[in-house]
Write a protein that binds this DNA or RNA. Structure first.
Lengths: 347, 347
DNA sequence: ATCGTTGTCGGCATCGTTTGCGTAAAAAAA
DNA sequence: TTTTTTTACGCAAACGATGCCGACAACGAT
């Protein structure tokens, strides 16, 4: 079968010892020029490549990192992974991807599997179900490098990279208010997620600053983060059935925003005339929609890059790191028709 | 730092040899029940996990496979990767993802890097630039397991998984014809790609079967597979500037289809009234667009699954495999407004 | 002639795990 | 009691590469 050449083969063929071959290949000064040449040419000819697994065993590191996200078929995450990959690649690391599909159990299995010495570090965005962190805490306490991004937790002290969810939510809510909407509902993921909390706060703050009372009934959680269409459907229907119907919806997640529009279309609710819509999304397609969606966009690629840089810094640090950073990147609002100025007829 | 427990640690702590511990852990019959219990309980208590790297070295395999695609931020590929991951995970394989970004050079570097013994097999969808296959041929000749999917090549004899691009193109072209369009242009990726060739053939066949003459000027190639917006823009503009302007466009790629709509919107060209649009796409968002896009969808998830099953079969085969399969999965057409029946006013 | 130095290279252990073989003690058979 | 068998374990090699240490020649210095 497929049997690549090893350093031993070269040694045997050339009547040298493996140590000599090894040193010749890495240009050690204590090997004569002619031996070096001999070895290097032979290696070149037979296309010798050092066995990365043997190196891993020796150096006790695999030069690979893993990223744990809920779903890669999600624009935010595939963009973030692009950022991750770009940095990892340049630094000589492999990237292993695993998906939790928003399941706590699956997340645990994946993390344990990966961390048991097949990767040097972990890049994590929590699943919607996760509200316990022992599996991370154990690893982190042992000194295993972990960086959280996007969906983070306060329970573990390590590097973190997030978008400014508070400000993003604030800005887009304010945008809706400025466009004339007063009864703004908020559709969001599982309540305990960091992104949900921060976006809810930003939303509340914008209401408060504009003297709009906060209404509990206007906040709906989709605990599966947009994975289950029915959840969004039910949430939106119950919003529309309120006696004091909202005139706008601010949705707090990529899948949520899009499926919100899908539900409204399904129900033949006119956007933005009956209900305006705006929310977090990183899809490049939202501008092509009917209507074009007003979104707040996270710098996904940069977040992935930054998180990876921090992770590699952790991995390659000589001494245990005790000072951790939390990096907050800014979001950007893109205004489109789905939140066009409210028409006066419907006061 | 992070120093996980090894079989040696257990042996030392329990005053046994490593062989005994190893055998106890895997339940060998020649270890007494009490010793087994002792070892297993100790291992459990200290959360022993075998070092996968050491195992890899010994077994000469890494239990990981790599997938080489152009871009994961593409619905087709992220869905396919989901399928790949689902099978790999169940069979105990890691998945390593690498992107060529449609670059031939990048593809080579990635493949060489991965194949030099850090993965057991390769799942490949070719980049748009790739029209030489030596890097694959060398590996394949040495017995290294490779499975191609989606964008394949005839130059290498191994397992392949594709959608029925010919039939898909035929069906959607026929759909356009049935809807009353007669001057159908075709926007596609690099001409040498297998998918481009097959889709072009299907398109031609549908025209032929309906007695519509094939027009060379109606076929436009975007050699970067939709990565560069300007390329699509130029192609479409030149189509619209033809003296005999097409009344419909059939686009042959995920990004192409979407950016085609973007360009048409940009140019204020009414879809489908001025130009109808239909094409290959796996985005779940196309139904929300303005107008909803008629698409032909590939069974991406299943393709990923099937390719992975074939690859693992190759990897785990005792004897060299010489009989290879080419599996063709069916596509599905989803009709929407972008190809609504042509209005008679514009004859 | 003896010693120290320098230039080249090989031996061996190491990383963590598995496994074939050998062997001590205990049990069974003679 | 002696021999054979069984039980239960240890030793060492192997996977591929590295690096410490030591060997040995040739050389100049004493």
């Amino acid at each position: 079968m497929y049997e690549p050449i090893t350093i031993k083969d070269i040694a045997k063929a050339l009547g040298l010892s493996t140590s000599t071959v090894s040193r010749a290949l890495r240009g050690s000064y204590e090997i004569s020029a002619e031996t070096k040449k001999l070895v290097v040419e032979y290696a070149e000819q037979f296309n010798y490549r050092p066995n990365p697994i043997a190196l891993s065993l020796k150096e006790r590191r695999s030069r690979s990192i893993a990223v744990v996200v809920c779903e890669i078929a999600n624009n935010y995450f595939s963009q973030a992974i692009n950022g991750i990959e770009s940095v990892a690649y340049n630094r000589g690391y492999h990237v292993i991807i695993s998906q939790s599909h928003e399941s706590y159990e699956r997340e645990i299995v994946n993390v344990e599997h990966l961390a048991s010495r097949s990767v040097d570090g972990l890049l994590v965005s929590l699943s919607a179900e996760t509200n316990q962190f022992d599996h991370y805490k154990n690893l982190h306490d042992k000194g295993f490098p972990i960086v959280f991004f996007d969906r983070i937790t306060d329970e573990i002290e390590t590097h973190k990279v997030v978008a400014d969810n508070y400000q993003g939510a604030y800005n887009i809510t304010k945008h809706l208010i400025n466009a004339g909407y007063k009864k703004i509902a908020h559709l969001t993921s599982a309540a305990h997620l960091s992104i949900s909390v921060e976006r809810l706060e930003g939303y509340k703050a914008a209401l408060r600053d504009n003297k709009i009372p906060f209404n509990d009934l206007y906040v709906k959680n989709c605990n599966h983060g947009g994975m289950i269409y029915n959840e969004q459907e039910d949430a939106i229907k119950s919003l529309l059935n309120l006696k004091d119907k909202p005139d706008a919806i601010f949705s707090g997640g990529d899948k949520l925003t899009v499926s919100c529009l899908a539900v409204l279309n399904e129900l033949k609710v006119k956007v933005p005339d009956e209900v305006a819509l705006a929310g977090f999304s990183n899809s490049p397609l939202v501008e092509l929609m009917k209507p074009g969606l007003t979104v707040v966009k996270q710098p996904a690629f940069e977040m992935g890059q930054t998180a990876t840089e921090l992770l590699i810094k952790l991995i390659e640090s000589k001494r245990p790191v005790t000072e951790f950073e939390k990096i907050v990147l800014q979001t950007e609002v893109f205004e489109r028709e789905s939140s066009a100025k409210k028409k006066p007829n419907k006061k």
